[in-house]
Amino acid sequence: MRVIDVNRIVGPVPTGDVPSADAAGLLAELDRLAIDAACVVHSHDLYYDPLALAELPDDPRLVRVPVVVPGPLGTAVPTTAKVVRLCPAEHRFVLAGPHGVVMARELAERGTTALVALEDPGAIHRLATEVPALRIVLINTGYRALRELAELMDVHAEIRVDTATLCGHLQVEWVAQRYGAHRVLFGTGAPLTDDAGPRFQLDHLELPAADVELIAGGNVMELLG
């Protein structure tokens, strides 16, 4: 079973000294938890300047996830990116505003998936309504957001979710059984959130083995082509 973390940060973070402050430390953490690869956003792009596109070592286990910002003061969408991250709170833009919709259409046309934190369910609903072909993976949803998550997934077939904070009792099983395992992706959100918990959870899901394999890495590999 291939295990791929769809939601990981590399680089120093404001909350403390973390092992993944550099790529070598991150790879050691992946080894420790038996995670084969990770889609990573650089903390410099996330918290400081996505235009600078901080360097990341060329390692086949690390898939770069650029932070993209819509509008004339934003970034271009990298032509090779299969997964990007939209951070409206960190970079102060309206997710479903005119510029956001234009970028979402470009992403959809290219078959690029957007990672988006579930901070504003209304904005995500408006964006998914305007651009229904855009594949969205909701990350860091929080275990209390199941109602908001279910409402979005009921209406929008291209919305998926990661397991980073989907940690309530049998929550992953409930989502997979209701919407299909193809819409659930293993993610940790580390180092801002715990990585050992979601990894342990993955090994103990009460789901068919084929569904667990999809969640563990199969769905991410499909998004990456």
Score class of each variant (00 low, 15 high):
residue 157 A to R: 04
residue 186 F to A: 09
residue 153 M to D: 07
residue 159 I to F: 08
residue 201 Q to F: 11
residue 120 D to H: 10
residue 131 V to Y: 06
residue 201 Q to W: 05
residue 153 M to S: 01
residue 199 R to E: 10
residue 115 L to K: 00
residue 153 M to A: 08
residue 148 E to V: 04
residue 115 L to T: 02
residue 202 L to E: 07
residue 137 V to S: 05
residue 116 V to E: 08
residue 199 R to D: 09
residue 151 E to K: 13
residue 120 D to I: 00
residue 188 T to M: 05
residue 140 N to C: 08
residue 133 A to D: 14
residue 128 A to L: 08
residue 180 G to D: 02
residue 180 G to M: 07
residue 153 M to Y: 00
residue 135 R to L: 02
residue 189 G to S: 12
residue 191 P to G: 01
residue 188 T to V: 08
residue 167 C to Y: 10
residue 174 W to D: 06
residue 173 E to Q: 12
residue 149 L to D: 00
residue 144 R to Y: 13
residue 152 L to M: 00
residue 154 D to F: 06
residue 117 A to T: 13
residue 130 E to T: 14
residue 195 D to L: 07
residue 202 L to A: 05
residue 139 I to R: 00
residue 186 F to Q: 07
residue 114 A to F: 03
residue 114 A to D: 06
residue 138 L to A: 11
residue 152 L to D: 00
residue 157 A to S: 15
residue 161 V to K: 10
residue 205 L to A: 07
residue 176 A to L: 09
residue 139 I to Y: 01
residue 172 V to K: 00
residue 129 T to N: 05
residue 203 D to A: 15
residue 176 A to S: 11
residue 194 D to T: 13
residue 183 R to D: 05
residue 183 R to N: 04
residue 149 L to M: 11
residue 162 D to Y: 05
residue 128 A to I: 02
residue 155 V to H: 01
residue 143 Y to F: 11
residue 138 L to Q: 09
residue 156 H to G: 08
residue 209 A to R: 10
residue 154 D to S: 06
residue 123 A to S: 14
residue 209 A to V: 14
residue 150 A to I: 14
residue 117 A to E: 12
residue 119 E to F: 01
residue 138 L to E: 03
residue 131 V to T: 06
residue 171 Q to V: 10
residue 177 Q to K: 12
residue 178 R to A: 13
residue 129 T to Y: 04
residue 163 T to K: 10
residue 131 V to H: 05
residue 197 G to K: 00
residue 189 G to V: 04
residue 132 P to D: 09
residue 194 D to G: 11
residue 136 I to F: 06
residue 144 R to L: 15
residue 201 Q to T: 14
residue 161 V to N: 05
residue 144 R to D: 13
residue 198 P to S: 11
residue 152 L to W: 04
residue 159 I to C: 12
residue 201 Q to I: 13
residue 179 Y to P: 01
residue 171 Q to G: 05
residue 146 L to A: 13
residue 144 R to V: 13
residue 183 R to T: 02
residue 177 Q to G: 15
residue 155 V to M: 06
residue 198 P to H: 08
residue 132 P to G: 03
residue 126 R to S: 09
